[in-house]
Design a protein around this nucleic acid. Structure first.
Lengths: 238, 238
DNA sequence: ATCTCTAAGATTGCATGCAAATAAGCCATA
DNA sequence: TATGGCTTATTTGCATGCAATCTTAGAGAT
């Protein structure tokens, strides 16, 4: 999406966000500027700017004179975020049905077709990657960068709670079938149908309570396990 | 919505945003830190943090090593923002139809009833104020703070281009009638109807091109006229 | 034992300073 | 006159320092 950040502040913001999304900084963690500055080998000033930037995204809470903490995600908030993402994605699907160019429609159909193989073969990794592409195509097809940004932000924020989604047996073919409904509606310009199909697809996640407890138990993001010991700090300078 | 900001940075961010929305800092204006710092009588540090915070909202563009500028609003972007706002508001209306409590429904109906008098009497000021309340009630009724925040942010960002909306003769009764459709659908729990009615209501704005040219001509925000001479700078300290 | 008040420590908020990068000005050249 | 390269000036990025505020530990009173 965006190129490698050029400034230290942006790299810091990205690194802190990644640490939070990756589970390394669990909800409730106090983010004191000094520690973060030492951890990344910089001064407090860029850390402060990065925290301020992250604060607007909802990932952290910044209370005046009290510092920043990783936002704690209650089951209620998680439910709310899932609903919001579903609604915004459904809206994008609706607009895509109305606004996609013939080329975009064809590319979406092609992508969907290719995903079928990975779905049948239960190749979860490959399917997950293509899944991101698929939803990104729907965002783009709405021809509305503002909505696309909101949708992508919500999807990103919820990513820790969607990791194990494709692990459930039989979930891949089912997901692919649901995608098929979305694609079909978009291709025939059926706005209401695309909306309904996407809402149905995105809403079919497990119980938020269960999602939350699984992540809390440290089962989120298996590829980048949390390590509270704090491994070698990445050098963000240069 | 939010109480008076406690920190200098937040007051700065609010002041700069207000200056932009009020037309005092037209699109394209370079926001160099030194000038802003002198204007508000503070140092560059809090200004930098305020700019970074504003950057995430789309109101200003911050390019690394090149400083910040007030985002220029092209007709295309304006159209996009209007569409996004309409869709999100329609979604809130849809959810309101499904989720509003009986008390919320009653309050919405009451508010709508009271607005009828102002609409008939063509009291634009009073109606505009109540209009904000009305849409706020629909946001709240969706019971989804995330969506409500997105909707409120878009509405706020578009406020300069909606100022003269209620000036057009006959617009007030018409707006009230459209509100009536929304209220009726919400009250009877008609999700699709509420969505459609709200989309219809919000989409009925003038041509974006015209909106843009009117604001560019300095006719936006008549209550707080732009003054390029820079009047007495507000003291944000204390 | 619990609560309150106090004081020390820790942390944030903001100002200042310096180095690096960008932008502006200038002159030479085509 | 227009263009290219060089010098100067402005601006941003980040580090450091100090004051104000919050947190926390502990003594004393109830």
């Amino acid at each position: 999406m965006d190129a490698t950040p050029q400034t230290l502040v942006e790299r810091l913001a990205a690194a802190i966000a990644e640490a939070i999304l990756g589970g390394e900084l669990p909800p409730g963690t106090r983010l004191d500027e000094q520690s973060l500055a030492e951890r990344f080998g910089v001064s407090r000033t860029p850390v402060r700017e990065a925290l301020r930037q992250l604060g607007t995204g909802g990932l952290i809470d910044v209370r005046p004179r009290r510092g920043a903490t990783v936002s704690s995600v209650t089951p209620e908030l998680l439910e709310e975020l899932f609903v919001a993402m579903g609604e915004v994605e459904a809206t994008c699907a609706r607009l895509s049905a109305l606004s996609m160019t013939p080329i975009e429609r064809r590319r979406l159909a092609d992508l969907h077709g290719r995903m079928g193989e990975d779905a049948e073969a239960e190749r979860a990794e490959a399917y997950a990657a293509s899944n991101l592409q698929f939803h990104g195509a729907v965002y783009a097809g709405a021809h509305n960068a503002t909505l696309a940004e909101v949708a992508a932000g919500l999807r990103r924020r919820l990513s820790p709670y969607r990791q194990a989604q494709f692990r459930a047996p039989g979930r891949l073919p089912r997901s692919h079938a649901e995608h098929g409904e979305v694609v079909a509606a978009i291709l025939r310009g059926d706005a209401a149908g695309a909306h309904a199909a996407m809402l149905h697809h995105v809403s079919l996640v497990e119980d938020p309570f269960e999602q939350l407890s699984r992540v809390a138990a440290g089962k989120g993001r298996p590829a980048a396990p949390a390590r509270a010991d704090g491994g070698p700090p990445p050098d963000l300078r240069s």
